[in-house]
Design a protein around this nucleic acid. Sequence first.
RNA 1: UGGGGAGUCGUCCAACGGCAGGACGACAGACUCUGGAUCUGUUUAUAGGGGUUCGAAUCCUCUCUCCCCAGCCA
Length: 569
Amino acid sequence: MEERHEPVSSAISATNFIKTIVAEDLKSKGLKQIITRFPPEPNGYLHIGHAKSICLNFGLAEDFGGHCNFRFDDTNPSKEEAEYVESIMDDVRWLGFDWENRLYYASDYFEQLYDWAEKLIKKGKAFVCDLNAEEIKQYRGTLTEPGKESPYRNRTVEENLDLFRRMRAGEFPDGAKTLRAKIDMASGNINMRDPVMYRIKHEEHHRTGSKWCIYPMYDYAHGQSDSIEGITHSICTMEYEDHRPLYDWYLQELEIYHPRQIEFARLNLSHTVLSKRKLLRLVKEGFVKGWDDPRMPTLAGLRRRGYTPQSIRNFCDRIGVGKKESLVDTALLEFCIREDLNKRARRVMAVLNPLKVVITNYPEGQTELMDAVNNPEDPDAGNRKVPFGREIYIELEDFMEEPAKGFFRLFPGNEVRLRYAYFIKCTNFIKDSKGNIIEIHCTYDPSTRGGDAPDKRKVKSTLHWVSALHCISAEVRLYDKLFLTEDPNTLPEGKDFIEYINPDSLIVKTALLEPSLKESKAGEVFQFERLGYFCVDTVDSLPGRPVFNRTVTLKDEWVKIQNRIHKKQ
RNA sequence: UGGGGAGUCGUCCAACGGCAGGACGACAGACUCUGGAUCUGUUUAUAGGGGUUCGAAUCCUCUCUCCCCAGCCA
């Protein structure tokens, strides 16, 4: 699974405001290197939004000569599970990033964090509060009104210390007490209204087991973890901007090394959702088949869909980094995977909607092996032989009884090329009782073997095909956008994002494939000529029975022409 | 009505007092044994009003719009 990739071409990534800040800091603070970190909570799967953060943090470290730590932010035992730890590390490795020996857990710092909490108590900057959750909420005030001070706010240092130690010792039940910072209940910033530092949870932690029954809150743990690791730049998303004063306050009161927090806008991608809550609903309610369903924007899903690490890293470079809320068009992601696969995918022929063609003047029982190029973009990919015979299948869409305007594929009397084979001309067609075309008769020109006419005459179209006698069949899964609406997060009043799921986001077909595909291996990528890029599914394929996932279609001029005609009508 | 943040082509990102540029998309053409790829070209933007300045997307000011914050979640 692990792959290494050449760095993304520097032509793509110009600069961003964070690089500017870091460059200035390096100069003004005389730093030799920077240290960043990627700090996921192990409570779910990584998605393309996390990839933006991963690329940013590891990329910055690479650009400025430093390193990026990998840290699990595991301060809440009720939400976190060990199973996620492995999958998250897999995803980051898959993207091609290496944290070497710098794997950390916030839970490794619990003892130090505890000592620092006592230090704040001794400074008179923290107190044990007996208010319950509901009361704390009442006392906190509202967005426009200041809060009230807790009646327990003025306990003595000795009492606070005693109570806090007893909290740790397990003397109190969940929710009975909290440790809170003593800051300012009238602050306009609600995060500063005596925020909770520790809560009591008699729960098993995935790493510390039952050693602790009090757990630090994110705000109390994160900055200090950054400080312990010597992080120079702690990069997070915009919603933490309001938390920065608190981040700074703890570090200042603790009088310890003070990293700099910088916020950037999280990624939004059109036609999909990236919130954990919504993704979970898609899985739980069965709209997709799991976290790694190829329609999911999770890294596991994208990987199974056929997206390459390189394409995702290129995407992350192209979208840039800013502070404003934005919605990136999925078309850019699709461009990135086409760009990458165009260079590396072997071309093969496969027919999704077969229509039988009989070449009436071709000798019965004859088979020829035609020379086919594996990848016109890559001479090293070599050639292969594709069997050809009297009866073949072409794509149903490649024939029209009465050609529409702009259609120059097969129609009665018209000559086209069969890729790597012969010119054929349609002489007749057969319909069933319902009027559906079920078979085409053509003649071929033997002098055009290989696909070129000695008399230099041209045809306007080249069709892909498979030999009826030699082709194999396989399940092919045609994936499309998961949502019909561009932004499933911004909906009319009363609408649920579920209502906008694309009913055709998955269409399963039995396709006919050239025989070389029989032994293709899980994860292999191909371009089915004129159709799109496909990969062999890593979960449901069996030896000799591959299942193919469509990663993305090819750009299709004919589809556009048809759409235009439809719009006019 | 409190605090914080953001407004530049259709989309995303640059330009940081000196010619508003790139990528994707769209459109047009060339080329092509994939209506793919490639190549060429076209199109469209500084939220609005004042001000400072020789010169403003950039500085000042007022206004408008959008986003985030009231977990013992992260």
